[in-house]
Design a protein around this nucleic acid. Sequence first.
DNA 1: ACCTAAACCTGGGCGC
DNA 2: TGCGCCCAGGTTTAGG
Length: 264
Amino acid sequence: MPELPEVETIRRDIEPYIKGRAIKAVGAIRAKNVLKGIKAKRLEKALKGQRIERVERRGKYLIFKLASGNCLIIHLGMTGKILKKPDRFVKVTFHLSNGKSFYFSDIRMFGKVSFSKTYPVLNLGPEPLADDFTANRLKEMLKGRGGNLKALLLNQKFLAGVGNIYASEALFLAGINPKRRAGSLKFAEVKKLHKSLREVLLAGIKYRGTSVSDYRDASGRIGGYQHRLKVYDREGRFCKKCRSKIRRIVIGQRSTFFCPHCQS
DNA sequence: ACCTAAACCTGGGCGC
DNA sequence: TGCGCCCAGGTTTAGG
């Protein structure tokens, strides 16, 4: 489910709700599959009494920074949610010192909850919305890459936070065919792609994420960007620019949507 | 480096 | 109603 804009929306929802509060207790229900590198008992022991200083996002990861320097790390996978009110798929419950709680819920259990004594090393590419991600930097990153461009945009070690929806949308906005070789882009195209990536991610945040199926914010509400998608999930429908039919192809086992006319 | 397939899971939608 | 497919915002691993 959640790509950079969805994770950022959740981060902004949850930080003021939990900031400065201590974790009083941790509950785990059928959570074995979502706890990575730590068992429920040890996680509770490690977190108990710790004050949450801030919530950061790196790529698609949420990093809950604790006053001790320890970190709670959550990746939402495909269907993971952070909720202020529980639903029937809650796997881990975090009870806070003020009597409130927040919940990690996940139907498919591709999400992961982990703990680190220090700030985690996540091995991710640059943050697309950071100032140091420039068109020139993207040009250098693409140089000599022989693989498929759209597949590369989904590679978190290449660029952090872009997922299947925003990759298709950015390529449409840039007018670039998803089947292109990554290293074949001319600088004018690199500049367009750079701008488009930032534009679609910022718009995704502005409209509080894309709910084509499971995504919900921390209050359980749907996002708004699904109404603004230009190509994703629009196979067979008319391109909003040129009225051609949007096509769906598969690249690297993932659905990829594009306009064959605007992205020739 | 790069590609493919499969695996991890559950639930919803659709055709029959 | 029900069964059997197919699909899904992600990541990892194995093998070629």
